[in-house]
Design a protein around this nucleic acid. Sequence first.
DNA 1: CTGCTATATGCGCTAGAGCGCATATAGAAG
DNA 2: CTTCTATATGCGCTCTAGCGCATATAGCAG
Lengths: 128, 128
Amino acid sequence: MADAYDALQDLAQALAHRSRLRILEVLARDEACVCHLTAVLGEAQSHVSQHLRVLREASLVVDRREGVMVYYRLADVRVAAIVALLKDLARQADPSLELPPVPTAPVAGCPCPHCAAARDRVGESCSQ
Amino acid sequence: MADAYDALQDLAQALAHRSRLRILEVLARDEACVCHLTAVLGEAQSHVSQHLRVLREASLVVDRREGVMVYYRLADVRVAAIVALLKDLARQADPSLELPPVPTAPVAGCPCPHCAAARDRVGESCSQ
DNA sequence: CTGCTATATGCGCTAGAGCGCATATAGAAG
DNA sequence: CTTCTATATGCGCTCTAGCGCATATAGCAG
């Protein structure tokens, strides 16, 4: 029963959640730490961690520890390709849907270096 | 709440089922009728119909009626591309997984013209 | 050591997806 | 009309994924 189609299904199921799709979209631009993703999604930290676990166990993302913070990035460029294709299809089905607003940076309340640096550049004006 | 990410999620969720992935894999080769898909998957006809409804409502496949039979095909080449990328990722995660056995044709017990023609060619020796 | 922060995990609850099974519709044929 | 076949739909049951919330772990600072 645990054949190759189960592996396929596991991959697809890992993709099949709004928050995880958003996470992958953010990671498609650049790696990010959990606190950054939490701030971008505006969800509970435990949920973000849970979603990241699902993505990690599906080998869609990989993590890298740096001090206290854990940075996640896509495990493969094909993951970004899949998300991009899905966005294509969604946009084609309903062109009125505006997708791209992926906050590049910074995010309010995120203490990670990425955001701090971005905040300095923009001068404390945080998106969201 | 019903923003663009919900559309993305709907697409991904439609993909996130073993049987639906197999259906898409079969349709990536050529269009097929419900009876053909039912025979290939070896599942209850009502389930196949149900899965096709999910795929249809997600605009991943389109149907075409021809007499009593209904033929389904992929709505877009990108659907096949997504499935192919997923297969790539799965194979990379575990190279021992053998994926491709998509029965080209014929399938025992399927009365559709495709299978009948294929059966004639091979001489009644049905796969499965 | 203590405390503080970033991240991960455990657990009960609930909504939804699939399944099994029965039944309905649609088209062809007699 | 009736009948047969291909496909679709309805319904109850169950099982799992996410959620909300509490708590545990890990690394740094003092």
